[in-house]
Design a protein around this nucleic acid. Structure first.
Length: 151
DNA sequence: GCCAACGTTGGC
DNA sequence: GCCAACGTTGGC
């Protein structure tokens, strides 16, 4: 299943969220979630490059600091109206839950494998909330997350 | 165009 | 609570 998904020609991303505001549970519960509130140009520009069917790691900030699941882009970037800004200033995408990881993959764990995750923006640019993920990195995180916790 | 001051995010 | 890393703003 995961293999077939990765064989398709799509791009991979990571979306950060405060679990208090919108957790992976919330995305599952809502069905379709509007990914709004991005107020950083770099992050916005990455969102605008997303294609329907692309997959995104969902990362919880705050106390958890871990990748918890995968979401799929169900609608490409469209306008997010924000008071005080001209129309078209900001964008949102729609996402749906795709697959919850069996085990959350923590930031600490990724850092401890820094040679396997060279160039991963999550480790380099801690403040960026939307970022591309190299297919190899994406695959590795899914693999780490599919493992059950050891005995 | 430069830079100081300030604000925000997010990890520690 | 602190701080590093950015981003933004405004004075010059």
């Amino acid at each position: 299943m995961v293999i077939a998904v990765l064989a398709m020609n799509r791009s991979y991303w990571l979306l950060k969220t405060e679990p208090d505001e919108c957790s992976y549970d919330d995305i599952e519960r809502k069905g379709v979630d509007h990914w709004t509130g991005v107020r950083n140009f770099q992050a916005r520009n990455f969102m605008r490059k997303m294609k329907k069917g692309d997959l995104a790691l969902v990362y919880h900030t705050g106390d958890q600091k871990a990748v918890v699941g995968v979401a799929e882009i169900s609608k490409e970037a469209y306008d997010e109206p924000v008071r005080g800004f001209p129309a078209g200033s900001w964008s949102q995408v729609d996402v749906v839950a795709n697959e919850r990881l069996s085990r959350a993959v923590s930031l600490a764990e990724l850092k401890s494998r820094s040679d396997e995750f060279k160039g991963f923006l999550l480790l380099k640019q801690s403040r960026l909330s939307v970022m591309p993920v190299e297919p190899e990195h994406f695959k590795k995180i899914l693999k780490l997350g599919s493992k059950k916790p050891g005995p």
